[in-house]
C-alpha cells in the first residue's frame, strides 16, 4: 500500500467531499459559530482533534468488541457514548492542564458532542473501511486519516465562511435574508465552487 492512498483520502475529504459543503455534516455549528474568524478556526481545531481521536477509538471498539461479539447493532449507541465521554474527558484534561487553552477551546467542546461531523465520520469509517464485517487493508490508518481530513475540511469551510461573514456585517442585505438565510446562500455558492473539485483525477 503506497502513501498516495492517504493523500487521496485527505484531498477527497477536505476538498471533494468536504464534510460541510458536500456532505452537510456539522452544518448546525457551521451556521452558528462562523460569525468571526478566531472562534470559527478554534472550533475547527477542536473538531479536528476530536474527529481524529474519535476515529481511532471507535475503530478499535468496532473491530475488537462489536464485530467479534456480533453486536454491530449497538454501533450507534456505543459510538455516541464514546464521542460524548471522550469530549467530556478532553474538556476536564484541558481545564486542569492548560487554562489558557481552555479559554480558547473550552466553550466549544460541549458543542462538539452533538456535532454531526464527529459522529458522522465515525459512522462513515465503519461504512467505508469495513467490507462484509471485515476491515479492509490498512483500515485503521485510513480511518484515522479520514477523521483528520474531515476535521481539516471542516476547519477550512469554517475559516472561509467566517471571513465572508465578517465582511458581510457591512453589507446591506434585505431584512428577511439577514443572518441565517444569507449564510445558506453563501454556503451554496461556496459549495458550487467546491463542486469544481469533483471528478478531480488523483
Amino acid at each position: 500500500m503506497d502513501f498516495s492512498v492517504y493523500i487521496t483520502i485527505i484531498i477527497s475529504t477536505v476538498f471533494i467531499n468536504n464534510f460541510i459543503l458536500s456532505r452537510f455534516l456539522g452544518l448546525c455549528s457551521f451556521i452558528g459559530v462562523s460569525k468571526q474568524t478566531v472562534p470559527a478556526v478554534s472550533m475547527g481545531a477542536a473538531v479536528t482533534f476530536v474527529t481524529t481521536m474519535a476515529s481511532l477509538i471507535t475503530w478499535l471498539i468496532y473491530n475488537y468488541i462489536l464485530i467479534p461479539f456480533h453486536l454491530e447493532y449497538l454501533r450507534t449507541i456505543s459510538f455516541i457514548l464514546v464521542v460524548a465521554s471522550f469530549v467530556q474527558f478532553t474538556e476536564i484534561i484541558i481545564q486542569k492542564k492548560s487554562p489558557a487553552l481552555y479559554r480558547i477551546f473550552g466553550i466549544y467542546l460541549p458543542l462538539i458532542t452533538v456535532n454531526c461531523a464527529v459522529f458522522g465520520v465515525t459512522v462513515l469509517n465503519t461504512d467505508v473501511f469495513f467490507l462484509a464485517g471485515k476491515p479492509v487493508d490498512y483500515s485503521l490508518l485510513k480511518s484515522i486519516v479520514q477523521g483528520f481530513g474531515a476535521g481539516a475540511g471542516y476547519t477550512l469551510a469554517m475559516f472561509l465562511m467566517s471571513g465572508i461573514r465578517e465582511r458581510l456585517e457591512f453589507a446591506e442585505i434585505p431584512r428577511s435574508l439577514k443572518d441565517i438565510p444569507i449564510t445558506f446562500i453563501i454556503a451554496s455558492l461556496m459549495s458550487l465552487a467546491f463542486l469544481g473539485f469533483s471528478g478531480f483525477k488523483i
Binding site: S12, I16, N17, D127, V128, L131
Partner: peptide, 9 residues
C-alpha cells in the same frame, strides 16, 4: 464483484 468507488465500495 466489489469495486472501490468515490465514497466507498
Amino acid at each position: 464483484v466489489t469495486g472501490t468507488g468515490y465514497n466507498g465500495y
